[in-house]
Measured scan of single mutants.
Amino acid sequence: LAALHAEGPLAGLPVTRSDARVLIFNEWEERKKSEPWLRLDMSDKAIFRRYPHLR
């Protein structure tokens, strides 16, 4: 499970980098069924690119 911001401008976004990794992994797991070539990237760089508020 990932903790998400409940309200405000960040509502629905992950609270920590660990939470972001959970979301990225879950999405990758779903997408790899139809796109088996996808690589999993959970590096800090990938997290910041996707969720800049975690910098």
Rank of each mutant, 00 (worst) to 15 (best):
L1M: 13
L1A: 14
L1F: 13
L1C: 14
A2M: 07
A2W: 04
A3T: 14
A3S: 13
A3Q: 15
A3F: 11
L4R: 08
L4H: 05
L4K: 07
H5E: 04
H5G: 04
A6C: 12
A6F: 10
A6I: 12
A6L: 13
E7R: 08
E7W: 10
E7K: 10
G8K: 06
G8F: 05
G8E: 06
P9L: 10
P9V: 09
P9N: 08
P9K: 09
P9E: 12
L10S: 05
L10I: 05
L10T: 05
L10F: 13
L10R: 04
L10Y: 13
A11S: 10
A11L: 10
A11Y: 13
G12P: 03
G12C: 09
L13H: 04
L13E: 05
L13F: 07
L13N: 03
L13Y: 06
L13R: 03
P14N: 01
P14Y: 00
P14M: 01
P14S: 00
V15Y: 04
V15G: 03
V15I: 14
V15W: 05
V15N: 03
V15H: 06
V15P: 02
V15Q: 08
V15M: 13
V15T: 05
V15L: 10
T16M: 05
T16W: 03
T16K: 07
T16A: 08
T16N: 11
R17L: 15
R17V: 15
R17T: 13
R17H: 09
S18C: 14
S18Y: 14
S18R: 15
S18I: 12
S18T: 12
S18M: 13
D19L: 02
D19C: 06
D19T: 03
D19Y: 03
A20M: 01
A20K: 00
A20S: 01
A20P: 00
A20Y: 00
A20E: 01
R21E: 09
R21A: 09
V22L: 14
V22M: 13
V22D: 05
V22K: 14
V22E: 06
V22T: 11
L23T: 04
L23F: 05
L23N: 02
L23W: 03
I24F: 06
I24N: 00
I24Y: 03
F25V: 07
F25C: 07
F25A: 07
F25R: 11
N26H: 13
N26P: 01
N26R: 14
E27W: 06
E27C: 06
W28T: 01
W28C: 03
W28E: 02
W28H: 06
W28Q: 02
E29P: 02
E29N: 15
E29T: 15
E29G: 07
E29A: 14
E30N: 10
E30Y: 10
R31Q: 08
R31I: 05
R31S: 06
R31N: 07
R31L: 10
R31F: 06
K32Q: 09
K32N: 08
K32M: 08
K32H: 13
K32S: 13
K32E: 03
K32A: 10
K33I: 11
K33L: 11
K33E: 10
K33Y: 09
S34Q: 12
S34Y: 13
S34G: 11
E35S: 06
E35V: 05
E35H: 09
E35C: 11
E35M: 07
P36F: 06
P36Q: 07
P36D: 06
P36H: 08
W37S: 13
W37V: 06
W37L: 12
L38V: 11
L38Y: 12
L38C: 08
L38F: 14
L38E: 07
L38R: 08
R39H: 12
R39V: 15
L40D: 01
L40C: 07
L40N: 02
D41L: 03
D41K: 03
D41F: 05
M42Q: 08
M42K: 02
M42P: 02
M42G: 02
M42C: 13
M42H: 05
M42V: 13
S43A: 03
S43H: 03
S43L: 03
S43C: 07
D44C: 10
D44W: 09
D44F: 07
D44G: 09
D44K: 07
D44V: 08
K45L: 12
K45F: 10
K45C: 15
K45G: 11
K45R: 12
A46I: 09
A46L: 08
A46Q: 08
I47F: 01
I47P: 00
I47R: 00
I47W: 01
I47G: 00
I47C: 02
I47Y: 01
F48C: 10
F48T: 11
F48D: 15
R49H: 14
R49Y: 12
R49K: 14
R49D: 15
R50Y: 06
R50E: 08
R50D: 05
R50V: 09
Y51H: 07
Y51N: 00
Y51T: 00
Y51W: 15
Y51M: 00
P52K: 03
P52Y: 01
P52I: 02
H53V: 01
H53Y: 07
H53Q: 02
L54H: 00
L54R: 00
L54K: 00
L54C: 02
R55A: 13
R55D: 10
